[in-house]
Amino acid sequence: MKFSTQFRPKKSFKVNDSDAGDKPLSSGDKAKDKLAVDALAQQIAELQNVFYAAHKRKLLLVLQGMDTSGKDGTVKDVLGRIDPLGIRSVAFKAPTTIEKEHDYLWRIHREMPAQGEIVIFNRSHYEDVLITRVHDWINDDEVQRRLAQIRDFERMLSETGTVVLKFFLHISKDQQKKRLEDRIADPDKHWKFDLQDIEERKSWDAYQSAYTTAINATDADHAPWFVIPADSKTHRNLVIASIVLEILEGMKLAYPPAKPELKDLKII
């Protein structure tokens, strides 16, 4: 089974029915799994070089998940070997005053990848149907309108040459508690800790419900969701790296044709 099929959500997917601690790709040896991630990351970097040189495709990687699910870690461990020239990471925070004066997709659309570019969204347009719904800033009718708009938006991206891959980093409540406690215990990790994370944790069940609704409504072959068990950081990286590499290999990438005028060129 292809990795891009194995981790797609099933019909009528429910977050709470998915095991965040599952490790189907693990060898059972953490050290070996880390070596496998390193090897996959190197292959991804090599293919990205061809991807950038060909300058035809556009790739968007969306990372969504609860706090501490590993969005930053994924960028570093899976995509950290890529030449910065061809990749860009965008971390979406609370919208600014200017962004609030536009429609909610305005700030998203302007960050889309250009030809030859890979863009990573650390959080994304999905926050506009997640945190907004959990805190009752919008009602169910508005959620449905936005989900329909997101479907149309992602279809447009696909039809105009952007490959869209969306990863839900699924962490358990117990594992999140452990990671938050680790940040509190280690002064060197205090910079990662935000008291707001504790407040958002109180709405855990509401977030699981909101994710369930969003994933079911917007999973599509042209903009697929992948549900990534994220309790294990190493296995999380292994799965995401395997999927990204599979997609890049499936593009049958090739360097641009050689330039005939350079064949006999001599440098004096």
Rank of each mutant, 00 (worst) to 15 (best):
A36F: 04
I98F: 06
D17H: 09
N16M: 07
E111T: 10
V227N: 02
I118Y: 05
P224I: 07
N49A: 15
G70P: 02
V134M: 12
L169H: 01
I118P: 02
I243V: 10
R133W: 07
A94K: 11
E261L: 10
D128M: 03
F226V: 00
T97L: 13
I228N: 08
V163P: 00
D128V: 01
P229Q: 03
Q64V: 03
M66F: 06
K58R: 15
Q196W: 08
K76G: 05
K58M: 13
L59V: 08
I150Q: 00
D231Q: 03
D72R: 06
R107P: 08
P187L: 02
P224N: 07
H135D: 13
L262I: 11
K177P: 01
D136F: 07
K202V: 09
N237E: 07
Y255H: 13
R57H: 15
V50R: 06
W225V: 00
R8F: 02
H55V: 03
V78Q: 03
S69M: 07
L130Q: 01
F3M: 01
K76V: 14
F13H: 06
D128A: 06
S232A: 04
L248G: 07
A91W: 05
D33N: 08
N16A: 10
T162I: 14
P187Y: 04
L157H: 04
L245H: 13
K202I: 07
T68F: 02
N122S: 03
K166G: 02
H222M: 09
I184G: 01
T162R: 05
Y255M: 10
F3W: 04
L147G: 13
D103H: 13
F168N: 01
I118L: 15
K202L: 13
Q64M: 10
L130A: 04
E99S: 12
S12I: 02
Q115I: 03
S18N: 11
A210H: 11
A53D: 06
D19V: 05
I87L: 04
Q196N: 13
F121I: 00
A36R: 09
R236E: 01
A148C: 08
A206P: 03
Q208D: 14
H235D: 04
T213Q: 05
I268L: 12
E154R: 00
L195I: 10
Q6H: 05
T160D: 04
K178W: 07
E159C: 10
E111F: 04
V50F: 09
N139P: 07
R179N: 01
R155Y: 03
R110G: 05
K76T: 14
L248E: 09
A36N: 13
A230Y: 01
R145S: 14
E117L: 04
I150H: 00
N122K: 00
I98A: 15
A20S: 11
K189V: 06
V78K: 00
D186K: 02
D219N: 12
V239Q: 00
D128L: 02
L245E: 12
T234K: 03
E99W: 10
N49T: 15
V143A: 10
F121T: 01
A41C: 04
R183H: 09
H109A: 05
A31C: 05
V239N: 01
T96A: 12
K34E: 12
S172T: 07
S203N: 15
L238R: 03
K23P: 00
K93F: 11
E46D: 15
F226Y: 13
M1S: 07
R183V: 12
F153C: 09
K173Q: 14
Q43P: 04
A114P: 00
S26A: 08
A148P: 08
K177C: 02
K30N: 14
K58S: 12
